[in-house]
Design a protein around this nucleic acid. Sequence first.
DNA 1: CCGCTCCTAGATAGATCGTTCTAGCGAGTA
DNA 2: TACTCGCTAGAACGATCTATCTAGGAGCGG
Lengths: 198, 198
Amino acid sequence: MATDTKDRFIDVSADLLRRQGYASTGVQQIVHAAKAPLGSLYHHFPGGKEELGAAAIRRSGALYELLIPEIFDPAPDLVSAVRLFFEGAAAHLEESEYQDACPIATVALEVSSTSDTMREACADVFNSWIAAGLPRFTAEGLDEATSRELVIGMIAALEGAFVLARATQTTEALHVAGELCAQATERALDARSAPAGG
Amino acid sequence: MATDTKDRFIDVSADLLRRQGYASTGVQQIVHAAKAPLGSLYHHFPGGKEELGAAAIRRSGALYELLIPEIFDPAPDLVSAVRLFFEGAAAHLEESEYQDACPIATVALEVSSTSDTMREACADVFNSWIAAGLPRFTAEGLDEATSRELVIGMIAALEGAFVLARATQTTEALHVAGELCAQATERALDARSAPAGG
DNA sequence: CCGCTCCTAGATAGATCGTTCTAGCGAGTA
DNA sequence: TACTCGCTAGAACGATCTATCTAGGAGCGG
């Protein structure tokens, strides 16, 4: 079928971009991994590598967003969910031999001074993650501003911990960042029921 | 003089790597920016682009490390210092039109699956930042483990906030991450004098 | 059968990649 | 002057890059 090939391009690109980044991933490598001819790539993506890259970033973002309900729904409480999120990330990173960290962070840093199309795709993904995480915190009675801070803080801490973890080949930063966010969440929840703190 | 050229190679490489990453920065671009011939590059760096890149990462790391005393020394207290660190980063990022974030994060993510030489250089820089930040926290009476967690958490939050900030072209993540770390530090200092908390 | 469309197929182009090559300059020394 | 050494200088190489090109197969309405 037709859409198969196009989807396969996006999928293999998403994988390659996560590991190598944008500049290091060649279209030849993509067509080889997708087992498809080069002509098909430019048929489905007239905008070339940049259009395909943006599509791959958006797909990666959408898939990664699914982890939020997957982890938060079965968790006993919000603080546990935050901890589980980081522990899951640490486990996955270790299993993949420090290859599978955030699917878009590398590209986000790489292209933000180079390609506005790609940069916007990354920004959209981050914003959709924030929007997806927000209700998990407001549902616990936290106000909008506090919830937003916790979500953004969590994503930032996770991304940064990935940077340290990949470079040092250790999961220490992920555990530390997880604890930092879990305790911040705990404190926010406490302040909610006892708004007298200073 | 001779060392001038070599230093210039390292300096311009550090700048280019910070903005574009490793793969997008060509040696031609480096020699052009350094106003030096290609032969000189391979004379000073027989290991080629990789050796020069590692040297640039290490220099960037050493220069960035200088910000720690520069900000922490004049600060009235530790919590203020943490806040000032993030506010300074936000201001610098905004002034450079979201170009000058962390000098090594982009490369760290990019090369960690590709070049072990470069990955190690990044890991060394991160570890030296941790070592440099540690005494600022232990000097306040915090134990070694807690201090290490705070420093790593701070670096991770900063790095991650840079990722979000560059992609979204906003400093919000930096402010949020700064507040997160400042409050975590505050709480740790409180727990120090009153070790009875839950 | 034709004619049209969607997609596959990969050869090819032109630019750029990192690296190696030889040549030569300028200062120091005998 | 003759020779060496550290460095400059950039042409040239083969590989690889992204993108374009032409050609053809498969399905479908007529």
